[in-house]
Design a protein around this nucleic acid. Structure first.
Ligand code: MN
Ligand code: MN
Length: 545
DNA sequence: GTCCATATGG
DNA sequence: TTCACACCCTCCG
DNA sequence: GAGGGTGTGTCTCCATATGGACTG
């Protein structure tokens, strides 16, 4: 059933109904995480006429935070003025809020600015850039005066709900990355979603958890402004200093700390960098600490670095950390170098744009009668999803707490396999009992293709590609590959060789293509090591200048 | 008139 | 808002 | 060549409209 068609107007009540779905979901599943003001907001929304509700939801989907009333025209709303009046009366919209004048000026085009402020424009000449004109206008007038003048030209509006909308959307989707447009994608048929067992236990437990998550998320927007605002880093660190008990929030917090630490490193402030990494709980914080301590080399630094390495080896946060620790600790077992073919480039004038070397390699291989595709990580991840689909969407406490999820919340957490031990084992035994697991994968592909899945890139996982893969890979190779990934999706999510190739002989091979200035990265080494141990065919194809 | 970034909407 | 890589550097055998 | 550091392209769905900056 297709609800929407691109270019065709949706049903009159379409967008409003989407928001209603959000409200229904949140009231049903997350009533305990709502604040009093959120409930008031929802009540106010219910009270206004349907046409006003429709307009408000249209505004939810637009950029904001200010809107020009003369730019609002929706057939399903009817008279915009009437709807706006209802919304203003209900306190859902504010008319002419005392916003900083530069925000209001931003609603006018360059042409309109010249019209409205002919004096400033005349002083700067006809070729004046928009930004300069705006600056001149701001310099010549007080905010108050500017707003008074602009109010005679346009009506501007602002959403008035505090952060209630943000909280409702976060409770609905469980992430700040999705918003109401997810409904549109779903109803266009762009995304389908698996039906999974919803349970709100393990999601946001209370209003405070929601607010902490939003507060941490909001800090992300400040990172790019670090170089321009003095003292910003102090404020950020202050807000990030408290570890969070809610896992998704803690994850973001630590990620931000790592970024802040990198920024300090780059500007040559190892002490502050260490302070950031020191309270982060995510890779690569401890690796950075070891490097920084060794470089700084003040009294006790080397011993501290060694102690840290020992802690990492004793209880690594993830596989990458473990690799780092054993290497730095000098106990790194030297991995056998993967089979490598060194060749001259068939196209010496090649421009090194994205994917160019891989395409060249595919052309050469095709000339030798081989078939191949450039899929990288999408291959092992996608095959694993097809093989272990039921594990991905298995009912696990806290894994599915929101609408339109593309997988369990904990897919990339270290204990993914641990908490699914029995269902993985059961699924593996079933796979191993099949004579032709490839056939199952193809049936799954047919059934599930297009369903949003964090491990699946359906564009590269075509029936042809999967067909070629399962036809060329021996049964045991296929099973060993997916068994590897399902045991540690986070560890094996990156570093897989570039190409899947079926040679003219019928034999398959995974090939990592390397240009003259490229080399195997640690994650790629880890995959080669694993593939080698399992007896899967993989090699490096290196081009020299 | 071209090129580009951004906003919008199905 | 990630992953892979181009391009730069130093160190070392 | 190994290994580290830094910056970049590509991708989030696709088509269309708008506006700003630049060009000859
Ligand atoms: Mn690659
Ligand atoms: Mn490569």
């Amino acid at each position: 059933m297709v609800l929407l068609t691109p270019g065709q107007p949706p049903p009159d009540d379409y967008y409003r109904a989407n928001f209603q779905e959000v409200l229904d979901f949140v009231s049903t599943c997350y009533d305990s995480a709502l604040q009093r003001c959120d409930r008031r907001y929802m009540a106010a929304f219910r009270e206004v006429p349907v046409t006003a509700q429709r307009l408000l939801v249209r505004l939810f989907m637009r950029r904001g935070p200010l809107f020009r009333m003369d730019k609002l025209a929706y057939p399903e709303v009817g008279d915009t003025t009437v709807a706006v009046a209802s919304l203003v009366d209900a306190g859902l919209l504010v008319r002419h809020p005392a916003t900083a004048a530069d925000r209001v000026l931003g609603l006018l085009t360059r042409q309109e600015l010249i019209q409205q402020f002919p004096f400033s424009a005349a002083q700067l000449g006809r070729a004046v850039r928009r930004g300069e004109l705006e600056a001149a206008i701001l310099a010549a007038n007080t905010d108050r005066r500017l707003r008074a003048q602009l109010a005679t030209y346009i009506t501007w509006l602002e959403l008035n709900g505090g952060r209630s909308l943000e909280r409702l959307l976060l409770l609905c989707f469980g992430t700040t990355r999705q918003d109401l447009s997810a409904f549109v994608l779903r109803d266009l048929g762009m995304q389908r979603y698996e039906t999974y067992p919803l349970g709100h236990a393990g999601g946001f437990a209370d209003a405070a958890t929601v607010d902490r998550h939003l507060a941490i998320s909001a800090l992300e927007d400040w990172l790019p402004r670090l170089p321009h605002i003095t003292g910003l880093h102090v404020a950020l660190l202050g807000r990030l200093s408290q570890a969070d008990e809610f896992r998704p929030t803690e994850r973001r917090r630590s990620r931000l700390l790592n970024e802040l630490g990198r920024w300090h490193e780059r500007r040559g402030d190892p002490d502050r960098a260490l302070a950031c990494y020191g309270i982060s709980r995510r890779h690569p914080a401890r690796e950075r600490c070891v490097r920084l301590l060794r470089r700084r080399n003040c009294a006790g630094d080397l011993a501290a670095a060694d102690a840290l390495l020992e802690a990492m080896q004793a209880a690594p946060w993830c596989a990458e950390e473990q690799t780092f620790a054993s290497r730095q600790g000098g106990k790194g077992r030297r991995q056998a170098a993967p089979a490598t073919a060194c060749l001259p480039m068939s196209d010496p004038g090649l421009e090194f744009t994205a994917g160019a070397v891989e395409r060249m390699a595919l052309r050469e291989l095709a000339a030798g009668g081989a078939w191949g595709i450039h899929v990288e990580n999408a291959l092992p991840l996608g095959l694993t999803a097809l093989a272990y689909w039921d594990v991905l969407f298995a009912p696990v406490a806290g894994a599915f707490t929101n609408l339109m999820q593309n997988g369990p919340h904990d897919l990339f957490q270290e204990d993914f396999a641990h908490v699914r031990r029995s269902v993985i084992d059961l699924c593996r035994r079933r796979l191993r009992m099949l004579d032709d697991p490839g056939a199952l994968l193809l049936r799954r592909l047919e059934a599930k293709s297009g369903i949003a899945c964090a491990l699946c890139n359906w564009r590269v996982l075509s029936p042809e590609a999967v067909g070629r893969i399962v036809a060329a890979m021996p049964r045991s190779h296929l099973l060993d590959l997916v068994d590897t990934v399902i045991e540690a999706p986070y560890r094996w999510r990156t570093g897989f060789p570039d190409l899947f190739v079926v040679h003219a002989s019928g034999g398959y091979e995974f090939i990592e293509v390397k240009g003259p200035a490229d080399q195997l990265q640690p994650q790629q080494r880890a995959w080669f090591d694993r593939l080698h141990r399992l007896g899967l065919h993989a090699s490096v194809r290196r081009y020299h200048a």
